[in-house]
């Protein structure tokens, strides 16, 4: 009797934990793209019917030198930061094409070239927070991915 009650309590606790896990979307946060790729290789995020994935990125943009007012500088830097955030989201969802070329002559590297490219369509991305300090604008942006968006 004592063991059966203990088993029942354990089962109910595990059910509650599983329900909590299903309710919260998985979060992926990105600030530095190069560091992100290293950390992501350790864990694979899967989009399932019961679990949404939230991708959060921080884009950075700089104001040009020849602005006429701080307001213009802010507006231009913000636009650049939004583009950077969109690019990070596209990299996360669709992936990056990487082409590398090294020229070696007489056992020495003469020239090293790496080309990366991303092409994607991003919709329903939301700006969470915007900061502007010392000419640098940072935008935190997130996008929710659900299974139904891709199940066609």
């Amino acid at each position: 009797m004592k063991y059966s009650m203990l088993l029942a309590a354990l089962l109910s606790a595990s059910t509650i934990m599983a329900a909590n896990e299903m309710a919260q979307p998985e979060v992926i946060t990105t600030t530095q793209p190069s560091m992100m790729q290293v950390s992501d290789s350790k864990k694979e995020y899967l989009l399932t019917e019961k679990k949404d994935v939230r991708i959060s990125v921080t884009g950075q943009g700089v104001a040009p030198m020849n602005t006429v007012s701080p307001a213009q500088a802010y507006a231009l830097a913000k636009r650049a930061a939004v583009a950077d955030a969109y690019r990070l989201i596209a990299e996360k969802i669709k992936g990056v094409r990487v082409d590398g070329q090294d020229l070696v002559k007489n056992m020495m590297v003469q020239r090293s070239t790496v080309r990366t490219s991303v092409d994607a369509m991003v919709r329903n991305a939301n700006i969470i927070e915007t900061t502007f300090k010392d000419g640098l604008c940072e935008i935190e942006m997130e996008i929710m991915l659900s299974h139904s968006q891709f199940a066609h």
């Binding site: 583009a83 950077d84 690019r87 020239r111 070239t113 490219s117 991003v122």
Partner: peptide
């Protein structure tokens, strides 16, 4: 317009550890 969805096209070139990038939305 951003909520409607934008196409992102990004190209970056790193030559001898110097990076240049272009992003078109």
């Amino acid at each position: 317009i951003h909520t409607l969805g934008l196409h992102v096209r990004h190209r970056s070139l790193t030559t001898d550890f110097q990076n240049k990038s272009t992003t078109v939305l």
